[in-house]
Each structure stands twice: as C-alpha cells, then as structure tokens.
Design a protein around this nucleic acid. Structure first.
Lengths: 335, 335
DNA sequence: CTGTTAGCGCCTTCAG
DNA sequence: CTGAAGGCGCTAACAG
C-alpha cells in the first residue's frame, strides 16, 4: 500500500501545536496568532499535506459537490451545460459528479440514490419523464434539487427552463412567412415537457396562419439522432411530402440531415428546416433556415445559482421557500 | 434543517441487534442468521435507511468513485468516452466525477487536487500538455492514474492510446492513391502527443511517395473548432492552394468544413479531406473522403479496466507493477 | 452467529 | 489565543 497519508495530526506534531489549531488555520479562522499561522503553513508545505475531504464532510455534513443527472451524456446540449456548470462550480470549490439515467426512470432512481448516499450537497437534473415522486423523495431527505431544461408538474421543484412554446412558434412562423404552407414536424415523445411545449408552439403557429396539420407528416419518437433519420426517411417516402419541417432538437436535426446527405440528394435545394438548438456544428446543417438558440451558458449559471442558494440556506434554511421557476428567452437565428 | 438522517444505530435499535450486525447485513456478510437478516432488512425498509457513503469511505478508505479530467468537456470525442466509462463504472457501483482542465496546466493541477482531496479511488486523464510531474505526484500519493488518448513520456503511467501515426499514414496514403500530389495539413500543437504522432504519419506518407511538404500549407493551432476554420481560410486565401488536406481531429475538421460551407462555396466538388475521427454527425462533413475511426468505446472500456485493476491492487497492491501501455488500432473509413 | 470496542480524519464546543 | 475531549456514521478485529 501507499504510505499512510499525512493528516492534521502530523502537521500538528511538526508545528508543535494541537490539531485544533491546525484545523483553525486550515479554515482561515481569524483568531489565530500570526506566528502560529506561519508555523502551521510551513509544516503543511513541508509535509505536502492535503486535506481529507471525506473526513471533513463527515463532520460538516457538506461534501462540496453537486450531482448532475441527464438522460444521455452523449448529447452536445448536455455537455455544454455540464461544461459551463463545471466552470462556475470549480471556481467556488465544488466538484461535479455526473450520471446518465439512460432515459430510464429505473436508472434515474438508481443514480439519485447513488448521489444521495454520497451526500452531494445538491442535485441538478434533466428528468427523464414526468414522474416526480422519487425525485421529491430525495429532496425531502434534505438535498436541494433543481430541474433544468425539462419541467415536471408535481413536486414543487425549482426549475430553469426556456420558452419552448414561444421559440417554436417563432420558428414555424418564420417558415410560414417565407411562403411555406405545408410544414411537417419531427418531434419527441410528448411525455417530455420540452418536446410537448415545442409541439404546441408548432401547432399554434399553424393554426394562427390557418394552415392544416397533416397527421402523416407529424412524427414523434425518442429524442435521438437515429429517430430523426428514420422520421425523415419515412416521410419522404410517402407521396407528396412537404418541403418544410420543424425539428424539435439538435440530435434529431442531425439525424434528419444525415438522411438527406446520404440518401436524399435529389431533395437538395428544395427542403427547408427550422429547428431547435444552435451548435458549434450548425453551419453543417445545410437545410437549416432557422435555428432557435437556447442560452445554454445562462441555463447552467442559473442552475448553479439556484442550487447553491438552496444549499447555503439563503432561502431561510428550510426547504419551505417557494419553488423558483425561471424561463429564459430563446433567440431566432436566420441562416 | 432537515430531520437528522437515519443511521445504522436507528436500524440497530429497531431490529434489536448491534450496529455491527446491521453493518454485516448491509455488506452481505454470509455469517448472519437468516432470521436476523430479515429483521434488519425490515427495519431498513421501515425507516427508509440509506447508507452514508461518506462515513463508510472514511473507514474503508475507498470512495467508489473515479475522477476524469479532460481539456474540454464539450468535444464530441470526450463525451463519447465519458458516456462509455459511465456505463461501465455505474455497473460496478462506481460514480464518476468529471472536471475540465480548460487546456491549462494550472487548472489541471487544481482539478487533480480537488479529486485527490476527495479521495477518488482512481483518475483517468486526458492530459493537457507534456508536463507530468504534477500528475506523477498525485500517483505517488497512492491514487492510480491512467492516461487516455494522449501520451506523456515521463512518469511511468498506464495509458490507453491508439496508433495515431499509423492511422494518419493510412489516410494520407489513401489520398495519394487517389492521385493527389499536393496535400495540406491542418493540425494541432506538437506539444500534444496525438497531434504530433499524426503529423509524423502525414510526413511519412508524403515522404514515402516522394512528395514535397509545402510549409505554406501546414498549419498548427489549438485543437479546437475555430482554429480549423481559420486555418482553412488562411490557406485558401493564398495563391494556388492544394485541393486535398489531412485534418488532425474532429473539432478542427468541423471548423474547416464550416468555413467551406459559409464562405467557400466555390470550392465545392474540388476539395477533399482525410481526417481523424468518425462521429455521429460525420455524414455532414461533406468534403471528407477518408475518416480514421478511433475505437472510442473500447478506449473507455480499457481505461476503466486498467484503473480498476490498479484500484483493486490486482497488480499486487504496490504501485510497483510496470506501467501498461495499450495501443489500439484505428480503422480507415471511405466515404 | 453476535456484541463490544476502537478508531478512520476532522471539526467544535468548552475550558483555560 | 490555544489545547483537550468528544463525536460525525460506519467497519473491523476480537471475544464470547
């Protein structure tokens, strides 16, 4: 085994003070004489002491880590969110433990248990479904939870969302203004709040313009790349498909575009998309006329702010403070 | 505050046994009578007991968590790696804490400290530079470390790599076989082992074919999207640029393609790329003729295997076992 | 098979 | 300003 790690006891010995004093110095307690402080710091350096956060956490009941669980780690949207949160959190000394729920409520429960057993100070979650009891249960044990991206009706949870309905409405309206009268829809399961709200936005725009929604050209599937590919293929193989589509997120958008690049060359120049998400690779999505940009960095920052506010009990300690739901605006981008 | 969490003491009281027995049941110790076991389990359920992993870790000196630090969380390559590792690790009860080093050695040091203070059982790292002392220092404290993707000369660390030189050689040779005689290079800083090795592969292929490398059309920059964009622009604005390029990774490849999509329409049909990485969005990279596919899932699996082997002391406990360096093969894909 | 007894490394009153 | 002492929740001998 590796030689036993150095503890405050060792430091105390070397600095000829008690462990209590070492602890005080380590925690910047002002009631310590300058000289003592220096001696302790010197000993710390010489011995290469590193604090054992596990022991500290046991005592203080705070781990200085936040958990985040997402349906899928592979999506660009999630990673950008995590990246932004990591930056904000690290600056305050927090660590970030990430988990994937693999789009399954069972796995989600498991991951929440893993996090709560590790006593994370707070959890940020992109929920997999509308079920909230298992989430509320964790919160009831005293771990603050904030939803990001997706909303859940019950549970009275804090949330950071965007105006999905409005963003979709704007995008579809733009296609209509361009003269499109038949507009298809490639979406996700209506159990997911984002997909649902974006579908409503699509519908409202169509209705407002007095246009008919053709059931044959409205597809719901999982929010993954492959289902965008398949939806596109299925629709274009039907007789007389529309030439404009609203697509519900980046992954399905890539999938749909992939289909056109691989098999649908003849549609080039004729197909137009409006879609959620503006990504680093967006210039490659050649059929995209309108993108609904989500303020991902801001979402991450707000999520961090909310969860840390609850952690530090800035709301008055009790979990009694009313839930805060933030709706951020999207921005329509013309390509 | 939330009501004090329930501990094994509470469970012990309710089940009328000692805390030791509760602990045994919780850890599936076989030397416990069936009846007692049942009573304890019942008490656990009734009280809604959850183990405090922090306390457990303090005692067992194992946190059942692995840390991973990457230069950037937003890159597709890293996401896929993390996703695969998360799956393998979760299956064995391990958590994953991720950190971004933001391509800075300073930040990297910071994150390593954060991880080692939290007593993660092992660390997987995509190093930011060739510097290894701060990494070896962490290992010396008894935390196993394995490098992924990028190699570092010193430090005697385990590593999971791919045959970068060979992959690049193959790809460039394929361009040459197609009749290209002038081939540009869009790469990354030679401080990074992958970029360096791939550059050598490019050079070897050119030399073997007796072709001249034109310094004006060899660009090194950071391995990010924007630098691919700029490199492409810079080269195409010079007189008489080559029509074939080897590109060192996915991010720069996207960047270079972005440039052509946005500003370089007139080059269409004429430009050909060979590039590292095959990604979900690869069909959108319209100039790509050859892709060097890395076995990302396998890299993740091997990294997990190596780090857990060290953790469990399967190598004989001591860190004395010789470092294991794995080189996985790449696969050339024709588009 | 089960209980008793020590800590793991740190923080935190409470005296001095 | 500093030290002594107790305990956070759990596990790991060692007795019985």
């Amino acid at each position: 085994m590796s030689p036993r790690a150095v503890t405050i006891k060792d430091v105390a010995g070397k600095a000829r003070v008690s462990t209590a004093t070492v602890s005080r110095v380590l925690n910047d307690d002002p009631h310590v004489a300058e000289g003592t402080k220096r001696r302790v710091r010197a000993a710390v350096d010489e011995l290469g002491y590193n604090m054992n956060q596990v022991a500290r956490s046991l005592k203080t009941r705070a781990t200085k880590t936040i958990g985040i669980v997402a349906p899928e780690l592979g999506s660009q949207f999630f990673m950008l969110l995590a990246e932004n949160m990591d930056r904000d959190l690290a600056a305050r000394g927090y660590g970030l433990v990430v988990c994937s729920s693999w789009d399954s409520v069972e796995e989600e429960k498991q991951r929440l248990r893993l996090l709560s057993e590790r006593l994370v100070d707070g959890i940020v979650i992109i929920p997999t479904s509308d079920q909230w009891r298992h989430i509320a249960a964790v919160k009831a044990k005293g771990i603050p939870i904030v939803l990001v991206d997706r909303r859940i009706e019950g549970g009275g949870l804090d949330a950071v969302l965007v105006d999905n309905e409005g963003g979709a409405f704007e995008a579809v309206s733009a296609l209509i203004a361009d003269g499109h009268r038949r507009i298809g829809f490639i979406g996700g399961s209506l159990d997911v709040s984002t997909a649902r709200e974006r579908y409503f936005g699509y519908r409202r725009a169509m209705e407002k313009a007095g246009l008919r929604i053709e059931p044959d050209f409205v597809v719901f599937g999982p929010l993954v790349l492959d289902s965008g590919y398949r939806a596109m293929r299925a629709m274009l193989q039907k007789p007389d498909p529309p030439e404009a589509y609203f697509i519900v997120n980046a992954d399905t958008h890539v999938g749909a575009t992939n289909y056109l690049m691989i098999e649908g060359r003849e549609w080039k120049k004729r197909i137009s998309f409006a879609a959620f998400d503006e990504m680093p690779f967006s210039p490659l999505l050649t059929f995209c006329r309108y993108a609904v940009q989500q303020p991902i960095a801001d979402m991450g920052a707000q999520a961090v702010r909310l969860v840390l506010a609850r952690v530090s009990g800035a709301y008055g300690g009790a979990s009694g403070a009313p839930p805060e739901v933030i709706r951020l605006k999207t921005r329509l981008i013309r390509h």
